[in-house]
Amino acid sequence: MFKRLMMVALLVIAPLSAATAADQTNPYKLMDEAAQKTFDRLKNEQPQIRANPDYLRTIVDQELLPYVQVKYAGALVLGQYYKSATPAQREAYFAAFREYLKQAYGQALAMYHGQTYQIAPEQPLGDKTIVPIRVTIIDPNGRPPVRLDFQWRKNSQTGNWQAYDMIAEGVSMITTKQNEWGTLLRTKGIDGLTAQLKSISQQKITLEEKK
């Protein structure tokens, strides 16, 4: 169930391209415009997507990853294993993690069937560096609404905000991946996880038929 919630949630996290980005210092504006741009692209490019579902990787690479804190999220997933990894191991892992996100997020976007969304009203940021933004996803086919909290983090150097995690039903996506990959990290280390991520990233994206 959580895996499905995570995939549905990713439908609204794909941010804007650099040329049309919203105010990078306001995570609420980023979330709002990102959702609108993403849904528009999914709707307008269905012919290309249906002809070649792996085209979704391109959308992810162009529109999402430049505005997601990939390395920060990847380091959180590694936890204690990050500090013990060599620079070469980290570089290989982050490259594999990025390719994994292209496949995983692309597969999530393949679930698009006309969903709509509501974003919580903007709250004062103050001096906060981590801000959760509640998004409610509404399914046109009558499924119950899904309420999610996207975690946005302020870059201490640039002042810009980027998304790095999502919490559904009190469970963090980062925590879920830590639990899912924990045994592999304990037995085969970061190299074993890197190899698995490379394998997963090679899987073809498949479209979910409308139910």
Rank of each mutant, 00 (worst) to 15 (best):
E169G: 07
K43M: 14
F39A: 00
P47V: 03
E122H: 14
L10D: 00
G142P: 08
I174R: 10
A19M: 07
Q80T: 07
N26Q: 00
Y55D: 09
M6G: 05
A73D: 02
V8N: 00
Q46V: 08
P132Y: 03
D40Q: 01
T183Q: 15
A75S: 10
Q107V: 07
D165A: 10
P27C: 01
E169V: 03
H113C: 14
N44Q: 14
K29G: 06
L148E: 14
Y105I: 05
R186I: 00
V146M: 14
I130K: 10
A9K: 00
L193Y: 07
T158W: 11
F150V: 03
A51E: 06
Y164R: 05
K37T: 13
K29F: 02
K37V: 04
G126R: 07
L193A: 11
G189W: 14
S172M: 15
V60K: 07
Y81V: 04
K198W: 04
A195P: 07
A88L: 08
S156K: 11
G114H: 13
Q162K: 11
S156M: 14
T86Y: 08
A21R: 04
K83T: 02
L42V: 11
I13Y: 09
L30T: 03
D54R: 11
Q151W: 11
K3V: 04
Y164K: 12
D165P: 05
P140L: 07
V171E: 04
K3H: 01
E63Y: 13
L197W: 12
V12R: 08
L16I: 12
K43D: 00
Q178G: 07
Q162A: 02
E45G: 11
K211P: 09
I49N: 05
I13T: 08
L56Q: 06
V77I: 01
A34H: 08
I138V: 05
L56S: 07
Q62W: 08
Q46W: 08
R153V: 05
L76K: 02
Y82C: 05
Q36R: 06
Q24I: 00
R143N: 01
I200C: 07
E33K: 03
G170D: 13
T158E: 01
S84D: 06
A120S: 09
N160A: 07
Q118T: 07
V12N: 12
K177G: 07
E63W: 13
R153F: 05
R50Q: 05
T116L: 13
R90N: 14
Q103P: 01
P15K: 09
M166Y: 09
Q103I: 09
Q48M: 07
M173P: 03
N26I: 00
P145A: 03
D23H: 06
V135I: 11
S156R: 08
T25Q: 00
R50P: 04
Q80M: 08
T206R: 10
Q202T: 04
T194Y: 00
T38G: 08
I130C: 13
N179T: 07
I59A: 07
M6H: 13
P121D: 11
Q80F: 14
Q123M: 05
I59D: 09
I137W: 15
A168M: 03
R134T: 00
V135H: 12
L109Q: 11
R57I: 15
Q89Y: 05
L193C: 04
I138H: 06
I130H: 10
T25D: 11
D149R: 05
N141E: 13
D191L: 11
L56K: 11
Q203N: 15
P124V: 05
Y82I: 01
N141Q: 04
I174Y: 06
R90K: 00
P53G: 10
L64N: 13
D54V: 00
G189R: 06
G126D: 06
T175I: 02
L30E: 03
T38V: 11
P15M: 11
Y164Q: 14
D165L: 08
R147V: 03
S201M: 00
E33A: 00
N160K: 03
A96H: 07
E122A: 05
P124Y: 06
G170A: 13
Q48G: 07
G159Y: 13
L30P: 07
D23L: 02
G192F: 12
R186Y: 01
K210W: 13
S84Y: 00
T206C: 03
Y55N: 01
Y100R: 07
L65S: 12
H113L: 13
Q157Y: 00
V131I: 11
K188M: 02
W181A: 09
S84K: 00
P124Q: 03
V131H: 14
Y93A: 07
G142Q: 14
V171A: 11
E209D: 11
G182T: 10
V12G: 07
Q115I: 01
A9D: 00
K154N: 13
T38Y: 11
Q157M: 13
A95H: 01
Y67K: 15
L5K: 02
R90Q: 08
D32L: 07
T158M: 12
T25F: 00
Q118M: 04
K154A: 14
M166R: 08
K37E: 02
A104H: 07
A92T: 00
K43Y: 15
E208A: 04
F97V: 02
P27D: 07
Y93F: 00
S17Q: 01
K211N: 06
D149G: 05
F2H: 06
M111P: 04
D191P: 06
M166A: 15
V171N: 10
R134E: 14
L10K: 09
A19W: 06
A88N: 09
L184K: 06
D32W: 07
V131A: 04
I119E: 11
E209T: 05
T176A: 13
S201C: 07
W181S: 07
Y117D: 09
I59H: 14
K37Q: 00
Q36F: 00
L42Y: 14
Q178T: 15
G74M: 01
V12S: 11
V70T: 10
K128D: 09
Q118S: 04
L78V: 02
Y55A: 08
Y55Q: 00
D127Y: 12
R98L: 06
Q107G: 06
A34S: 08
P53Q: 10
V131Q: 13
Q107P: 02
R4C: 03
N141Y: 00
P144W: 13
V131E: 09
N44R: 06
A104D: 11
D61I: 14
Q62C: 08
M166T: 09
S172R: 12
N160F: 07
F39L: 04
I133Y: 01
I138S: 09
G192E: 14
N160M: 02
Q48R: 06
S156Y: 12
G106C: 06
S84E: 07
G182L: 13
R134L: 09
D127P: 01
K29V: 09
K204C: 15
M31E: 05
P27L: 06
R186H: 11
D54G: 05
A19P: 13
H113M: 10
N44H: 13
K71S: 04
A35R: 10
A85W: 06
A96G: 03
M7Y: 00
Y82M: 03
Y72I: 01
I137Y: 00
Q103L: 05
D139F: 03
L30N: 14
T206K: 02
Y100A: 11
